[in-house]
C-alpha cells in the first residue's frame, strides 16, 4: 500500500484477490460513485486479479485517481509478467477460456468499466488498464 493517492496490491494468492477488491472499493468510495458503481468496480478488480492469479501466478495492481476533461474517476492498472495472451481478440470473447473458467473475466470486466485497454506480449506479460468515471 502506498499513500492516499495510490493503492498497490500484490496478487499472489486468492486472499489477495479479496484484498484487492475490498481495498479498491474503499479507495473508490472517496469519490462520488453510487453503491452500484462501487460494486461494479469491486467485481471488475476481482475478475482481473483472478486472471493474473490463474494465468501468470503473480502480478501487481495499482489503483489511482484519474482525471480527464473535468471528470474524476479511478484507474486500475494490473500488470503481470506471465505467459501473455496469444489472441487478445479471442480472449475478449464471452465464454472463451483456457483455464476451465466461465470465460467471462476479461470481457465481463470490460463491460463493467467505462474504459478498458489490454496490452499483451507473448512471453513477456499482460497489462490491463481500466477506468471508471464518477457521476
Amino acid at each position: 500500500m502506498l499513500g492516499d493517492d495510490e493503492l498497490h496490491v500484490q496478487i499472489r494468492s486468492d486472499a489477495d484477490v479479496v484484498l484487492a477488491r475490498q481495498e479498491g472499493r474503499r479507495f473508490a468510495s472517496r469519490l462520488e460513485f453510487s453503491s452500484s458503481d462501487l460494486t461494479v468496480i469491486s467485481a471488475a478488480i476481482s475478475e482481473i486479479a483472478r486472471s493474473i492469479l490463474e494465468y501468470a501466478r503473480t502480478g501487481d495492481m495499482h489503483i489511482k485517481l484519474a482525471e480527464k476533461n473535468g471528470r474524476v474517476g479511478i484507474v486500475v492498472v494490473a500488470r503481470d509478467e506471465g505467459p501473455g495472451i496469444r489472441d487478445v481478440e479471442l480472449a475478449m470473447q464471452d465464454g472463451y477460456s483456457t483455464s476451465g473458467g466461465l470465460g467471462l473475466g476479461l470481457p465481463g470486466a470490460r463491460r463493467l468499466m467505462d474504459e478498458f485497454e489490454l496490452r499483451s506480449e507473448v512471453g513477456r506479460g499482460t497489462t490491463v488498464t481500466m477506468r471508471k468515471w464518477a457521476r
Binding site: P107, R111, L112
Partner: peptide, 11 residues
C-alpha cells in the same frame, strides 16, 4: 447492487 453487477458481467 450485486444482482446488477452479475447481470452486467453476464453471469
Amino acid at each position: 447492487e450485486v444482482a446488477f453487477t452479475m447481470v452486467q458481467l453476464g453471469l
